[in-house]
Nucleic acid binder design. Structure first.
Lengths: 145, 145
DNA sequence: TTGCTTGCAAAGGATTTGCAACATG
DNA sequence: CATGTTGCAAATCCTTTGCAAGCAA
């Protein structure tokens, strides 16, 4: 199986784009992080290794990674886009704590199936979906009590 | 059952806020429209009746309506917030066509129940959720074929 | 009168873009 | 070398805010 690096390079070649140290570094940094990350957080990390990098570049590379199928945009509705790994990372939805923001990846095959059926019942062919479950985690519920 | 108008006025009184012609007009205009509407669309309509109205006021009143429980924010992820009726308008999710944007309100009680269970299985207490189904409507599928 | 409201314009925050200098294939 | 790429700053886009003037209670 191909590595993310290889996928990315293949994508660049396919699009007649070029490999650059900035792109490599931003990709690596993104891959090393497990959790969702915002463009700004990624920029802050990357900047430590190479202070000359501009945030525009981070935004641009993030977009490339999405196009290459390596990253996925996640929108928790707080005005900032987050990015998560996409390659070898099957589809899932998110359960987010309204208190502390703690996030769990969830997947329910029955829900997935029903979503498809609901769409079909209106004559739509489901292409994708977004589902965010918001709640209070155990810790936050205890704090409130 | 109380009218939206009454709800709004009661809310203003409760918060020690004031009734103004602008608020009345924006509320009326919003109520008359059935579908989702953006702040800018609402502003455009309202401006025709009273060109002196500022868009800041529209944004402010929209926020009030949300707080009063009359409007609900809907985020289709295209960078613009939309607002829909909330009062006497039970919870539902949205099925949006990726081609033409045509939107259908959907509700599946089994999905709703499963969402609660999924959250609970991770120790979360579900407070709310967002679910957007994206697909292609019949018309758009024919166009593509 | 008191202090909430308004419209305007300026400010905000996140993301994008124009551009001249630069680097890659 | 021909183009794609970069960093910077300025520009966008949507939304919010500060403020002085205007109103509601």
């Amino acid at each position: 199986m191909k590595s993310e690096r290889e996928i990315f390079e293949a994508y660049l070649i396919k699009r007649h784009l070029r490999g650059t140290p900035q792109r490599g570094m931003i990709l690596d940094t993104f891959l090393k992080r497990e959790e969702h990350i915002t463009a700004e957080q990624l920029y802050d990390i990357v900047k430590k290794r190479d202070p000359s990098i501009g945030q525009a570049t981070v935004y641009r590379v993030l977009k490339l990674m999405v196009e290459a199928g390596l990253a996925r945009e996640v929108d928790f509705g707080d005005g900032v886009m987050r990015y998560e790994h996409c390659y070898n990372h099957p589809h899932h939805d998110h359960l987010v704590c309204r208190g502390c923001g703690k996030t769990v990846e969830v997947l329910d095959s029955v829900i997935e199936e029903l979503q498809k059926r609901v769409a079909e019942s209106f004559g739509y062919e489901l292409t994708d979906h977004e589902m965010y479950l918001y709640g209070l985690c155990q810790t936050c519920r205890k704090k409130k009590a």
